[in-house]
Design a protein around this nucleic acid. Structure first.
Length: 272
DNA sequence: CTTTTGACCTGACAGC
DNA sequence: TGCTGTCAGGTCAAAA
């Protein structure tokens, strides 16, 4: 579910409730996430104070001194804070209780998410070390995109969704950004001109910013840290709109498949 | 190196 | 009311 905007919404919602708070207890009800929740997580984290909450790609990092708790929401994960949490429901896998009684609850029906321990953020972590630039980094520009796509013959949409190229862009926002940039998703990456890559950089940032401003996208189950839904799905130009009229030219939106993911585009607004 | 495919897991929905 | 098949926001690992 969550792409960069939803993870960022989660981060902003949670940070004020947990920064400066000391972890009093950790209850892991089900360790079977994408990787098992480390058996020693409780003993490592208990008693430590959260200094900062960062987002890197779609990962959240709860910094505690040199170390950090790393959380990924997978496809269906949500993190919510409660002052007085309701009874645990199925798929509520972890509760972290702070010294002021705040409870941070991790829920993830499909269990594609992760909760791991990073011993030293200075030393890096295998999941973080190979990541490309953040979309809002100055390093993500047309020259950079041009350089890293020279040997890529596969579709530009696959490059855009590759976290080594740029982080945080998933299926929804890749489709939306390519529409805004007027680029057909199936175009081989190395055949997109530098001028159009420059448009793509602008479009990626614009769509992510707009989504964050709307609280992210709630398709099935995403909610922010306070339980509020997002509304950006109402502004989609192409995603999940197969057969519907293009908001710009009124021609039908088409659907295809690239790398086992649904792709949506307007054949007129996104010419070959 | 790039590219493709399968795998992980649950729930929702369409069609029979 | 079942049952089966398909699809879903992610991304890793293996194989080509």
């Amino acid at each position: 579910m969550p792409e960069l905007p939803e993870v960022e919404i989660t981060r902003r919602g949670i940070a004020p409730h947990v920064i400066g708070r000391r972890v009093e207890r950790i209850d892991v009800y089900d360790r079977r996430l994408r990787w098992p929740v480390p058996a020693d997580l409780e003993t490592r984290l208990r008693g430590l104070t959260i200094d900062r909450v960062d987002r890197r790609s779609k990962y959240l990092l709860f910094h505690v001194g040199e170390a950090a708790l790393l959380v990924h929401l997978g496809m269906t994960g949500t993190l919510r804070t409660w002052h007085d949490p309701p009874p645990r429901k199925p798929h509520d896998h972890v509760d972290i209780t702070f010294d002021d009684g705040t409870v941070l609850r991790y829920r993830d029906p499909r269990r594609f998410g992760a909760m791991l321990w990073v011993a030293s953020t200075a030393d890096g972590h295998p999941l973080l070390d190979a990541l490309g630039p953040e979309p809002f980094d100055a390093a993500f520009d047309a020259d950079y995109l041009w350089r890293v796509t020279r040997r890529r013959h596969a579709a530009i949409k696959l490059a855009l969704m590759d976290n080594r190229v740029v982080t945080g862009v998933g299926n929804i926002y890749a489709n939306e950004a390519l529409f805004r940039a007027g680029i057909r998703p199936s175009t081989p990456a190395n055949r997109v001109s530098k001028a159009r890559l420059a448009r793509l950089v602008v479009a990626v940032r614009a769509v992510l910013e707009a989504a964050i401003a709307k609280g992210g996208s709630t398709l099935r189950d995403f909610v922010g840290s306070d339980g509020a839904a997002g509304y950006f799905q109402l502004e989609y130009f192409v995603y999940a709109r197969a057969g519907a009229a293009c908001r710009v030219c009124k021609r039908p939106i088409r659907q295809s498949r690239l790398g086992q993911r649904s792709s949506f585009y307007c054949a007129h607004c996104q010419p070959r």
